[in-house]
Amino acid sequence: MQNSDDAGVYKISEDLALIQTVDFFTPIVDDPYWFGQIAAANALSDVYAMGGQPVTAMNLVAFPTKIMEFSVLRKIIQGGLDKLKEADVALVGGHSIEDNELKYGLSVTGFVHPKKYWSKHGLKPGDNLILTKAIGTGIISTAIKGGLTSVHIVEEITQLMATLNKQAALRMKNYPVNACTDITGFGLLGHLAEMVVDSGCSARIESGAVPVIKEAIEFAGMGLFPGGAFKNKQFRLPFVEYSDKVDPLLRDIFFDPQTSGGLLISIPEEYADQALADLRTHNCTKATIIGKIISDQKEKIYVV
C-alpha cells in the first residue's frame, strides 16, 4: 500500500487492514494529567485521520526519575488512560526508560477496511476542504512558555488539544471523503501541501474563513511564533501563492505547528454543507469550509 500517509496500513484480509501509528513528545502544558490526555488524543488522531477505528494502545514513557516525583508520571498515565477509555481503546502495555527530559506518547493500533481507508492522496477538483478545529495552538504554547498567558486561555487550548478527532471521523464516515489528514507539526499549509503533491490539482484557501484562536492572532502580533512555524514556511513556501490582500500575520499563522489539531477533509461540494452541519452538531463547533480544490495542474496552494 501507499506510503507517506498518516499511519501505516497493512492488509490482513479482503475486508480487514491494520493501522499502526506512534507519536510522543515533551510536555506542552504544565498540568501532567492534561498532558497525558493531549498526548493520547494526538496519538489516536492518525488513526481517525485515516478513517479507522483505534483498538489497542501502548504507552511510551521517558521519565527523569531523579528530579521528578513519581506521582507526576502517575497523573500523566491516568490522563492518557482516561482519553483511551473515551475512545474505546484498550491499553495493553507499554515501555518506559529513564531520561533527562520527560516524554510521553503512545503507539496505537486500529482497524480499517482495506478499500475504504482515507488517504492524503485523493483530492478531486470541485471538492470542498473542511477543517474541524481552530488553529494557533503552537503560538499559544510559545506564549505559555514565555509566561504571557492567562489561566483562561491555557484552559481553552488544553481542551481544544485534548478533544478527540473521533466524532469528526465518525460523522464523516457517512460521506464520500476523497482525502483526509490531521493537522499537526507541519501546520495547516504544510499538511495541505502534502495532499496537493502529486494530486494533479491545486487548492484555493479563503484566508478569512480559516478558524484561528483569537488569542493566537494577538500573540502572533507580538512575534510569538514557535521556531517550527518558520521551518514549515521555508520548506513549503514554493507551493504557496498569497494574494496581496492576505494579512502577513495569517501567512505565518497558517504554518503554525499544531498539537492534536483537527482533521482536514476533502469532500465533493454537493455533500459539504450537510457534512459541515453534521460536524457542528457533533462536537466540532469550529468546523469550517476553508477552501476548495481546483483543476489547476500546477499543484499549488492559492491563498486569497
Partner: peptide, 12 residues
C-alpha cells in the same frame, strides 16, 4: 538564538 528566544528576551 532561534525563535522564540529573541522575542522572549526582547519582551522581557
Amino acid at each position: 538564538l532561534s525563535c522564540p528566544q529573541p522575542v522572549l528576551l526582547t519582551l522581557n
